[in-house]
Simulated assay, not measured.
Amino acid sequence: MKKIVLTGAAGRLGSYLREPLSKMADALVSTDIAEDIGKLYEGESYLKADLGSLDEMMAVMEGAEMVVHFGAIGDEAPWEDILHSNIIGARNVWEAAYQQGARRVVYASSIHAVGMHLKQDFIGIDAPHRPDTYYGLAKCFAEDLGSLFWDKRGLESVHLRILSAAQVNNPRSLGSWLSYDDLIQLVQRAIEAPTTGFSIIYGVSNNDRAPVDNHLASYLGYRPKDNAEQFAEKVLAEAPPPDPTDPAQMCQGGPFATVELGHSGTATMNIVNDKKEV
């Protein structure tokens, strides 16, 4: 294809997507609110742009065939911040993609759109929305936005409900882990699928303890290869005793299920910033 747009290119997950996406099109336009993202890959250019500005998104999307939307705030935050970047920003991405003639949006949704469901329920992609935070609510909005734009305007979208794309260092991550290699495969399959309409798929590796069911999304061709069980002995040996009365341990959203609205859900999660360097 001729042009792919990647939002959130300065973020941790974006750093792992830039190189493979640059090989899938003649041009990759990466964008974020950072001043720059350092060295660029062959065929990649960078445009600083604010998701909250439709005009800026229109400029970024010009000529794009695919949009990989990983931008916005990646944690629970005050309502006004979520509204600007994650809700208005999502609307601007879809509107600009439609007006500029893009074929599909591949969106970094989140398990937090359904975060208050119990892990033991083994939910599928058809589980009803049950957000755990304003952050999760914004993911619900973007999923419904994608559905609306498919039904009314024919713009395809694939919504990747990512569980936890970070190093495995706690019991929850034994089920929720999405390795970076599997993340890349997931995005590539969402781009390469001949048709998708409006689709949802969980972003999770091939973990023995995965708490979600992706079989209804098998048509996308995603077949994860990595398994967090390799870390289980060490993680469980170092973890405190489990508490089945704690929603943070029982719910899909983990700590987001108990955090106060507007307050960080990642603050207690010990996420390692192993961002890829070019």
Rank of each mutant, 00 (worst) to 15 (best):
E44Y: 13
W79S: 03
M66H: 14
L28S: 03
A49M: 10
S30V: 11
L137V: 08
I82N: 02
A96K: 03
D50Y: 10
E42H: 14
N86W: 10
M57Y: 09
M57E: 02
V114C: 10
K39V: 15
R103C: 00
G52V: 06
V114E: 01
I37V: 15
S110T: 05
E62F: 06
Y46W: 06
E56G: 04
I88C: 01
I111V: 07
G124C: 06
D126S: 08
E42I: 15
Y134N: 09
S45E: 14
I125D: 03
A108K: 00
E35T: 14
P128Q: 10
D81C: 03
A49T: 07
H117T: 14
I125M: 10
P128V: 12
E62M: 08
D121G: 07
S45N: 12
A90K: 07
H129T: 03
M58T: 15
L118M: 03
D36R: 14
A97V: 01
W79P: 00
G115I: 01
M58I: 11
R91N: 12
D126T: 09
I37Y: 13
V105S: 02
G43K: 08
A64V: 07
D126N: 09
S53T: 12
I73D: 02
T133N: 05
E56K: 10
I88E: 12
D50A: 05
M116E: 10
I33G: 07
I87Y: 07
D26V: 09
Y98N: 04
P78W: 06
D126K: 09
S85M: 07
D121C: 06
R130L: 13
D121A: 15
E44A: 08
L40G: 09
L40W: 12
W79C: 00
G136D: 06
E80S: 11
W79K: 05
V68W: 10
M61R: 05
L47S: 08
M58L: 15
S53C: 05
Q120A: 13
Y107W: 12
M58V: 11
W79A: 09
A77M: 08
H117S: 02
